[in-house]
């Protein structure tokens, strides 16, 4: 693994909530163009690591280097500006907006119409608005949601809401897309479609960081996997190696997983 191939390097990340060490000294390295799986039993600290990575939580210790920039402690919008987009374990769409508008919000970062442009409908503002709408339609189509473009986000079926979160995140033109349990609550057909979508996103050049409890899905997709348990990384490597690691098997059996 050559150093210039590294997109994200997290080293020694620690995060406490009161007396609870949600993360202690966690380091991971994500390379350009790969799908990186992050697994671990419930409460292992996976979501907390995402929150630290995307600026929603400030780490107590450690550094984050993303695409050559130090990003730990930055505000969420600044992190998004550097090219990290995410989805949420508990879906967080803009419920009163249509599916299309949700994706259009994702374009906020890559557009710049201000109050004056909006009020006077300047030529530039109109052109930009049209480009935003077109791109949002493309992304809905890309995620298989065109039929829902004018439905309110809160009215969409569960699986479609998860895919809408992906479309919205893609609208920010991310280099790294961080997905927190995208297959949760999906049936087998939806999961298969999701797998195809994620592979397609990666083939189009976006690096993926994937938290997922569906072992078949995460092991089938990932190039590298890291395992968290009680806030510590207990294994990292290729899926086949990690799956056979005794500590991993122990952690999952202890956590009630098969």
């Amino acid at each position: 693994m050559s150093a210039d191939n590294v997109l994200l390097a997290a080293s020694g990340i620690g995060k406490h909530f009161g007396g609870l060490a949600a993360l202690s000294g966690v380091s991971i390295t994500v390379r350009h163009g790969e799908i990186f799986g992050l697994i671990g039993p419930n409460g292992a600290g996976k979501t907390t690591l995402f929150n630290v990575l995307t600026g929603l939580a400030v780490p107590d210790t450690g550094t984050l280097i993303f695409d050559g920039h130090r990003i730990e402690g930055l505000k969420p919008h600044a992190v998004a500006g550097h090219g990290i987009a995410r989805t949420f374990q508990n879906i967080r769409l803009f419920g009163s907006m249509t599916a299309l508008e949700n994706v259009m919000v994702g374009r906020h970062l890559r557009s710049n119409t201000g109050v004056l442009g909006a009020v006077f409908r300047t030529r530039a503002a109109v052109a930009e608005e049209r480009a935003i709408t077109r791109r949002a339609h493309e992304l809905l189509d890309y995620c298989g949601l065109s039929a829902h473009s004018n439905n309110l986000a809160r009215d969409l079926p569960y699986g479609d809401q998860r895919r809408l979160e992906i479309a919205r995140a893609l609208a920010t033109d991310p280099k790294l897309l961080a997905l927190d349990e995208p297959a949760a609550g999906m049936n087998a057909t939806e999961t298969a479609a999701l797998k195809a979508l994620l592979e397609r996103i990666r083939n189009d050049g976006v690096t993926l960081l994937l938290i997922e409890h569906d072992m078949k899905l995460v092991m089938g997709l990932s190039h590298s996997v890291a395992v968290l348990d009680y806030g510590e990384k207990i294994a990292e490597g290729e899926p086949e190696t990690v799956q056979r690691d005794p500590r991993v098997i122990e952690a999952y059996l202890g956590g009630g997983f098969a």
């Binding site: 600026g55 505000k75 969420p76 919008h77 803009f94 919000v105 994702g106 919205r168 609208a171 920010t172």
Partner: peptide
């Protein structure tokens, strides 16, 4: 929170 994560200041 979702708005800020989508890049809105």
């Amino acid at each position: 929170l979702a708005a800020s994560s989508m890049g809105i200041n």
